[in-house]
Design a protein around this nucleic acid. Structure first.
Lengths: 213, 213
DNA sequence: ACTCTACATTCTGAATTCAGAATGAAGTAC
DNA sequence: GTACTTCATTCTGAATTCAGAATGTAGAGT
């Protein structure tokens, strides 16, 4: 067995993200370090390190002498983050080997079709999976890490997006068009469609958010 | 007077970055937390928080049970980071108000000309200043913060780039062309030239680096 | 009744302490 | 003389403790 000596701080990070995704902490409230540390069964030191990391990524907010807060994500924040992810994914796509993308396109088409029939609960995971597959030939590891970090910030809002089955279909159709463009070797179209894919997410979610709290 | 109660961890971060920029710590060595904490006059707790933040950005490396290391930047890392910065700056440019860019172009041209005559020591600062001025109308604060973070990683290699006066001139000329494109409202050309500007930096620095240590 | 102040409580930010992993040196076997 | 093992030392990772800031409440004064 692979002896997993993962740093406590990383395990904490993952667990906190899971709890956030489950909506266990109400938005807009303060995180009580002591209470959370107790509930996790660890001390405040590694917990603070984990929270500080999440704050640096933008998942949490750290107010001086006021601790960590789950500030409600504003429409502004959505409008700022999604274009970043879009641009980074386009860059990752352009950095990938076109031949490999071409060979991989059929699988991406299949995955898109699977997603089209997914229910709102599992659609988010399918969407994630598709994007991961799309970028798996990108050799720029730093870029992939950065994309992952940015996605973490908005990850818990995916659920809201896929609430309406229509959007699942819409998004899956975009995925299909991207994959088809890769099949014909039309990288420019693929890039444009990919940007649009994130643009759609931005528009929908920004509209759902309170405007300027 | 504005009573500055800046968190210790941020002050430490800045001080460590200054020392890194001054080349006070030899590349490829381990950072001794205790020693550094003593030399800074603080305890290891906030120091670790600061170092963890730098590690997350990629300035340092954190090996499990081996502490923080100043791993030598490889050619690979340069080749991975610069395109990211380039893509993000292009996005920031495209998100800016064209009218404001147009009005600001003369100042950018002037700054470019100033930089063309700078010596290798001050050229880096001039370069930074120019890029800051270029992006100052970008309304996407998160994007600007991300760009700043990415630049931190490669910042201490700027010095090497501007060692040769020829490169200062080259870079300044690119800046001028970008500004001129903004003056005529040709945003596409400006974006392309901006990408090339980072491409040039990447090529030169990657060649200077040891290949695959 | 309302407001302002003083004080007690709670929580964060930082220092200190403790436990366990990694490193290096000494000693022994071959 | 060389290689392997054992043990002491050093350093990281985590827990605990301490100091000071923020918040909430009770009581005095108007």
């Amino acid at each position: 067995m692979a002896i997993t000596r993962r740093p406590l701080r990383e395990q904490i990070r993952d667990e906190v993200l899971v709890r956030l995704a489950n909506g266990e902490y109400p938005i807009g409230t303060r995180i009580n370090e002591g209470t959370l540390a107790d509930s996790l069964g660890v001390s405040r030191t590694p917990l603070r390190e984990a929270l500080a990391g999440l704050a640096q990524e933008g998942v949490l907010e750290l107010r001086p002498n006021r601790g960590f807060w789950l500030s409600p994500v504003t429409a502004t924040e959505i409008r700022e983050t999604y274009p970043i992810i879009g641009a980074l994914e386009v860059l990752a796509l352009q950095a990938s080997d076109p031949a490999k993308l071409h060979a991989h396109a059929p699988k991406l088409i299949k995955l898109a079709d699977t997603m089209a029939q997914a229910d709102p609960v599992s659609a988010g995971a399918k969407d994630d999976q598709w994007h991961t597959e799309l970028l798996k030939f990108c050799p720029n590891q730093r870029l992939l890490a950065l994309i992952k970090a940015q996605k973490t910030v908005v990850h818990r809002y995916e659920r809201a997006f896929f609430q309406k089955p229509k959007r699942i279909k819409q998004s899956a159709a975009q995925h299909r068009r991207i994959a088809e463009a890769l099949l014909t070797g039309d990288l420019d179209t693929a890039a444009t469609e990919l940007r649009d894919n994130w643009e759609l997410g931005m528009q929908v979610l920004a509209d759902l958010m309170p405007d300027t709290p």
